[in-house]
Design a protein around this nucleic acid. Sequence first.
RNA 1: GGAGGGGUGGGUGAGUGGCCGAAACCAACGGUUUGCUAAACCGUCGUAGGGGUUAAACCUCUACCGAGAGUUCGAAUCUCUCCCCCUCCGCCA
Length: 422
Amino acid sequence: MLDIKLLREHPDVIRAGIARKGEDPVKVNEVLALDEQRRQLLQQGEALKSRKNTVSQQVAAMKARKEDATAVIAEMRLVAEEIKRLDGELRTVEDHLHVIMLQIPNIPHASVPDGRTPADNKEIAAWGAPPVIDFAPKPHWELLESLGIVDFVRGTKITGAGFPVFVGKGARLERALINFFLDEAAANGYTELLPPLMVNAASATGTGQLPDKEGQMYVVPGDALYLVPTAEVPVTNFYRDETLQEARLPVKLCAYTPCFRREAGSYGKDVRGLNRVHQFDKVELVNMVHPGNSYDALEEMRSCSEQLLRKLKLQYHVLLMCSGDLGFTQTKKYDLEVWSIGQQKWLEVSSISNFESYQARRLNLRYRPGGGGKPEFVHTLNGSALALPRVVAALLEQNQTPEGKVIVPSVLHKYTGFEIIG
RNA sequence: GGAGGGGUGGGUGAGUGGCCGAAACCAACGGUUUGCUAAACCGUCGUAGGGGUUAAACCUCUACCGAGAGUUCGAAUCUCUCCCCCUCCGCCA
């Protein structure tokens, strides 16, 4: 969430930012009204508490002198009731204020272009070219089936639609990519975590999945837990409610996890093969940095993800997301898309975002400045490096032979132990 | 799952109704001393939210001793519920 002081002092800046995201800034007015109400109640309540505290001391002194304190005690009984009433009122106002604050999105960075839809996103970089193929390339789902390396039908039997089973060299290729991505992250200075795959509501709220995207997560009802939709959630929550020494920044963490997404409401289009599934593998990068460095960190993370695609020799481009296509909690975001030669379209394989202090405030994740001084919120960022299914899709399609086999990219050989599938 | 013990400031740990936002020690930071290091000594040393000040420094108030509710004029301290940790037993990869 945003800083209430910023909202109080510069409501117009916030309103403008919300409007750029295509959302209604009217909630700012609600916040301002509730904030004013809150401060009035605070002042009334605290004045009474102050009186209560001093009188209580007097009662102690009177009793020590064996004086009669019944009159004062009777009066204080009324004061105590009034305090309780005001505290209750204050609680109601603060709860309401908190709910509204969670509904106010983060505001876009100045370098983010205005726009409403994905069509307004800007391509800012491109790399590679499609391979020269003198036959009609097949889409990956045909290759998967003929090679027998992913079984959708049996996945449906075991669990349901959108839960593919990787088989034989398919499973091995998946594991090879995971290891490759993790090794590259380690080489870039990232510390690997292997986190829990279920998180509690506090963690999901910290990163912004709750209350915003509740419908996207699988819920374990008996235990009030959520299956992770991305490693971002457990990894970013690693230091929740902690204050880090400034010298420890930047914190660079990476993690492989399966990701579970209900994908509610996305039927029909783009769901063939591995394009959109309910469970997929992903390696995620998370940065926790000094507020002055977060946009440099964003570029560094983008570079890490790009390097992976280059080493895999996959053609890709980079999109700078427009203000209207930013997520609720993000200030700036890049998407990396690979070219699918079998489908003749771009597939998103990475999303790299800066949240500035928005998540950190929800997480209560701060750092203590090296020269002493008050703790401040860190900036958090995350980025995929990378999401597996679409990488696999593009990789299979791009490296297919006329006979329907697939040549494995050379960087993966030491992980796969084979150089060709089929 | 059963039985018992426990959650206090960065750490250890005292504190069973008012003089406790909380002793002491350690760590950290500043200083004195010292040829350097170490030691010793002195001092500082929680967080958040209000109010005052143009602002900062600073002053002041309030809250916080796992979380929430209760008893009381007054709660770290008493009562209840929940969460978490530890030990033993059972079960188990």
